[in-house]
Structure formats: C-alpha cells, structure tokens
C-alpha cells in the first residue's frame, strides 16, 4: 500500500514536470495552437520580396498581428494576416511592406483609414503597397 502511494506521488511529480516543460517550450517558441484572440484577413501585393511568415504587422510601430501564409494567386502575392481581436481595420486602410532600416527585416505596416466599413474575418484589404526594391528605384530615377 505504502509503495503504491510513493509511486503515485512520483507519477504526479513527473506529470507536473512534463506539463511545466511543455508550457515553457510553447511560450518560448511562441506556438499558438488555436490562434485564439486573432482573426484572419487577406491582402494582395504585387511584390512581397523578403517577407516571411510570422512577420509582425504593426500600426504606429505597435504589433497587432502576424503573417501566417504567403501564396501566389493570379501571379500576385496573397498574404494571410492574423489580426488581434479588438483591433479594427477599416476597408480603406493601407497595408505597406516596409523594412526596419535599409537592410533590415521586412514587416507590414497598416495605416488606418476613415471608412465606416470595418473588415470582417476572411475579408480582403484592397489597398496595399508592395515591398520597394531600393536598387531598382535608384536605377530608374537616379541613373
């Protein structure tokens, strides 16, 4: 009887240890199994050069979501973004791909609009600015 009790206590300790390990690794790895608290919207860009999944989406520099999928549709890039619940994106907002510094990583900056129409989950944000290739611009306008 005593032996069985000790085994149960050890079992509980092992279980607790495993749960804490899982919790720590999920939190550190930023894994969100159910994507709770976010809603998806899509946006079409003529170019997404340098943009990767998990890239952050920002309004005024504050993260409000992340990119979850990038695929080719009609020879244009269709980006799926998860936006935090409670952050309203108007239908005339503009999503622009920007870089942090000249050679820095890319992110999506959303500039809020004035429309009364708020995008619903699954809607598409129509106004976008693609990633700008500095070299090709210099070639066109400066040379």
């Amino acid at each position: 009887m005593k032996k069985a009790n000790i085994e149960i206590i050890v079992g509980i300790f092992v279980l607790l240890g495993l749960i804490s390990m899982a919790y720590v690794s999920i939190n550190l790895g930023k894994v969100d199994f159910f994507e709770n608290g976010y809603y998806p919207i899509k946006a079409k860009f003529t170019s997404v050069t340098g943009l990767k999944t998990n890239t952050s989406i920002e309004i005024s520099g504050v993260p409000i979501g992340k990119v979850t999928d990038i695929k080719l549709k009609d020879y244009q890039a269709e980006v799926t973004m998860l936006i935090k619940n409670g952050v309203e994106i108007q239908d005339d907002a503009i999503a622009s791909i920007r870089s942090k510094g000249i050679l820095g990583e890319k992110y999506i900056s959303v500039s809020p609009g004035a429309s009364d129409i708020i995008l619903k989950p699954g809607d598409t944000l129509f106004d976008t600015e693609p990633s700008i290739e500095l070299l090709s611009l210099i070639k066109k306008f400066a040379l």
């Binding site: 503009i94 622009s96 600015e129």
Partner: peptide, 8 residues
C-alpha cells in the same frame, strides 16, 4: 508610382 501610393 512604382508601388508608392500618393494618398498613403
């Protein structure tokens, strides 16, 4: 123009 929105 070249992807840069004038209104933006």
């Amino acid at each position: 123009i070249e992807g840069v929105s004038i209104i933006g």
